[in-house]
Amino acid sequence: MLNYVIKRLLVSVFVVLGVTVVIFSLVHLSPGDPVRMMAGIDASDEDVEALRDKLGMNDPLIVQYFRYLNDLVHLDLGQSIISNKNIADEIFTRFRNTAELAVMGMLVSAVFGILIGTIAAVNRNRWLDKTLMSLSITGISVPSFLLALLLILFFVSKLSLLPASGRSGSPFTAEGFRYIILPALTLGISGMASVARLTRSSVVSVLNEEFVMTLKAKGLQRKLILFKHVLRNASLPILTMIGIDFGYLLGGAVVTETIFAWPGIGKYAMDAINNNDFPAVQGSVLILSMMFMLINLVVDLLYGVLDPRVSLE
């Protein structure tokens, strides 16, 4: 297993290098001049040129790329063109906020998704199953901006129970927790619906396998069969889905973060893209792709833990 991890990490270095080339080319080839954005339409060409020179943006692209790579090797993601702030610091703070939201969202989708899916599978083809599955189709179909507004309308405008936006310190405090509930629900509900559907089909197919019949014949309790044997066997595709979902959530849900004014990395990357703040775009995309790779690795490792038949070599 250690060999496998080392091999994967080594391959990741090349993937990261590839990511830097792709993202560097993309941001520099896309239209929009960050200095022009900062200076405004009416700024004179001389002002814009002077600032471009100062920021080293008039150097050949290849020179800029190697300068970027050199900084990267020294763990320096550079400074934002717009705010002069250190990008690594900015990303760290935003990433922490996004991670809080992603973990909460994932908890909602995993816990409730698996629960609903299992209940539906056990009651397959009965009214409960049909109701739950229709609800989950609705959950998948409702776009997050609408869901977010509906939640705000209900919990904030009607009931005045929760705050509509912002982040108020750590979600492990009572006040902080109140602020994370609505964005986490928004993120969690659509994930929950897909997890529920996948869990249902997975559990149903495992329930039809012969070993389940054997277990029943042995006289094992129904709940024990379900939780100890069936769910464990059905868990691989569910885990893959949750892992991929979690990766996406860590990438920051721009819409959810925007509506709830959650200071996460998705909104940060989006602002950086809109302002053509090259270093900030490069920095955030790089960190996000690294996170994605890491999560994939962890999910692959978990396969081996959950199902000893899976060989990681």
């Binding site: 507004l149 705000i152 904030v156 405008s157 005045s160 705050p163 509509a164 936006s165 912002g166 925007t258 509506i259 709830f260 004014a261 200071p263 909104k267």
Partner: peptide, 18 residues
């Protein structure tokens, strides 16, 4: 000054007295 990028959310915050 609170950063609230979404105008609908901001309006609800005004209505809520926040």
């Amino acid at each position: 000054f609170r950063l609230i990028p979404d105008s609908m959310t901001a309006l609800i915050e005004l209505e809520q007295g926040n």
